[in-house]
Design a protein around this nucleic acid. Structure first.
Lengths: 340, 340
DNA sequence: TTGAAAGCGCTAACAG
DNA sequence: CTGTTAGCGCTTTCAA
């Protein structure tokens, strides 16, 4: 701020009245004469006066800022969720302060600390893939500072959160595979501490049961969510004596890595191997073959998270709600065998 | 902030000393006795004291916040640039406040106003595609409030900015097409008010000249950056009596729309039509055929923009610098004819 | 070596 | 109807 913003004091001096008169006139206080009110408001407009939020914040103990922590900023899923959060925040006159944990536990802890230092009024968080310990949220929980988790969640009995119907979605995928003639259905899971990993894995098991398919430990691979690790996981599946004829991948990264690996060994999707992912809508349509995928109401997840946040601002001690968002299975080409 | 943060006053009361003593002890002021310093710092740690940035901001007239305005949050290009900005901001102890213009001029104006009201110390901006008037930046320029543009820029003689070597990149694309036997090279441009449109168009013309190819107005289409409009533009090119044998698209959206249209009419990429875009690296590898594309140092663009910003904070009146980032043409399959 | 007081911009209770 | 004052949390003179 090179040149100082104009303050109430500046206006008061110029009009030769007291600061409080100006303050009141600006908010149409009934005690102030019409003429004075008019004069003050005119000058304020002319001088381009806007109240200083720092002063207000100091006074009111509020900053109208929400801290948002995501594993990364560049994934379409997260940036879309952020858009949703921003949308609702803006409606409520709040700004969001975004911090990326880069999928690192340490950076997540750091971000929590930093954001609280800047006096955000609370946090909306998606856990990093490394995070197994959840102590860093104690401060928030104990001091009734609003906190909302989305997607990758924890401490769900204390903290309101927004999740997708992960288990059900995974179950449906398995059934869809089954109906399309696939029998050796593999699953590439993410880090086991992640709630989404657990939930989707459970759905996978449930699906096998529903279809009377045997569970085969060999068919479950695991990876951290990097491209490299996902490629390794895929290769381990493809190298099995009896390789799977279908793969469900836990997210975008995993699915695209799998896709490349499968093509590389000369297998055909969907004829040799069916492929379905929890993936982004846009990407699914652009690849070849187009991907059957579980589609998330991503923007809405952000909106709901923000709404839960404002509920929390209103009622910091109310019992935490969990919102489960419906996903849908969009069938495209990667799971439809040409010749059956 | 449900329970109030602990303040200097709280510490002072607890230790039965004055606020100023505590303040000084905390910053190791030499006037304070070692023992007092120790005692204060110990208590501060125990009580989890952190200075209130609102109070500091009020005092110092600084907020350590940068406003960032982008056309949208979900495009990989922008979210990556933001990551770059955030990276440098964090190094300097700054936070960023992100606002999306949704490619709308009005929202951009609104965002500028809102961000300035929150007393960010300056702005880093990429113009919306609608923006043709640039008055809303007058406040910044006139009051020496730091402002940096990136990618889509304006007022480059007054405002520091970061751009890519757009013209040169487009020229190279045309030459690459030519070397691969393509002769009727079309270009799908964006809105003409955008600096990137102008620059890339100039490069396109230059390329034609370099290769001794005739300029044909028919081969230049234009669209706003929506998928629908890009599809229309592509179709108009494909419907020409003598359709192009190569298309250069101004960005991701345009290229993917073009790709779908071309496939739809049964033409083969790259044999019937070569395709090259200013596109995202990740997407380029995932589509089929993989896309030859102009690759941007996206993260670095963000970093440079932030660096320029801090230069501006230091020297608000120094002559504005322009930084031109080098792109590179990564050749993949969409521009390599199988049979020549 | 420590404390008191002013002031950053603003609101609200209290006087007049 | 308008002004005075205290205080939000902090730094920084000036005094002691």
């Amino acid at each position: 701020m090179a040149k100082r913003h104009v303050s109430l004091k500046d206006l008061a001096t110029e009009l030769n009245v007291s600061i409080s008169t100006v303050s009141r006139a600006l908010k149409n206080h009934p005690d102030i004469s019409c003429e004075m009110t008019r004069k003050v408001q005119e000058l304020a407009r002319a001088r381009n006066y806007t109240p200083n939020p720092l002063a207000m914040g100091l006074l009111r103990q509020e900053t109208r800022m929400i801290g948002v922590i995501v594993p990364d900023l560049v994934t379409h899923f997260f940036s879309t969720v952020i858009s949703g959060i921003e949308y609702v925040a803006k409606q409520n006159g709040y700004f969001i302060l975004i911090s990326s944990s880069s999928e690192s536990y340490e950076k997540e802890v750091e971000s929590v600390k930093n954001l609280l230092q800047t006096r955000v009024e609370g946090l909306i968080v998606c856990l990093s893939q490394e995070t197994k310990i959840f102590d860093h949220f104690d401060v928030l929980v104990n001091n009734e500072i609003p906190l909302v988790f989305f997607d990758r969640v924890c401490r769900t009995d204390e903290v309101p959160n927004v999740v997708a119907d992960n288990s059900e979605a995974a179950r449906k995928v398995v059934c869809h595979f089954y109906e399309n003639g696939y029998r050796r259905i593999a699953y590439i899971n993410g880090p086991e501490q992640l709630s989404i990993s657990q939930q989707r894995y459970n759905g996978y098991l449930q699906g096998l049961q529903d279809c009377n398919l045997p569970f085969d430990q060999e068919l479950v691979a695991q990876c951290n969510l990097s491209t490299e690790d996902a490629s390794l996981a895929t290769r381990s599946l493809l190298n099995l004596k009896n390789h799977p004829d279908a793969i469900l991948g836990i997210n975008d990264t995993v699915i695209f890595a799998a896709m490349k690996e499968i093509k590389q060994v000369g297998l055909n999707i969907p004829n040799d191997i069916g492929l379905i992912g929890f993936t982004d809508e846009f990407h699914s349509t652009v690849v070849d073959p187009s991907l059957t995928s579980v589609t998330f109401p991503t923007f809405e997840i952000g909106q709901e998270a923000a709404r839960l946040f404002f509920e929390r601002i209103q009622h910091p001690t109310a019992p935490p709600r969990q919102i489960e968002m419906k996903t849908s299975l969009v069938v495209r080409n990667s799971s439809k065998r040409e010749a059956l």
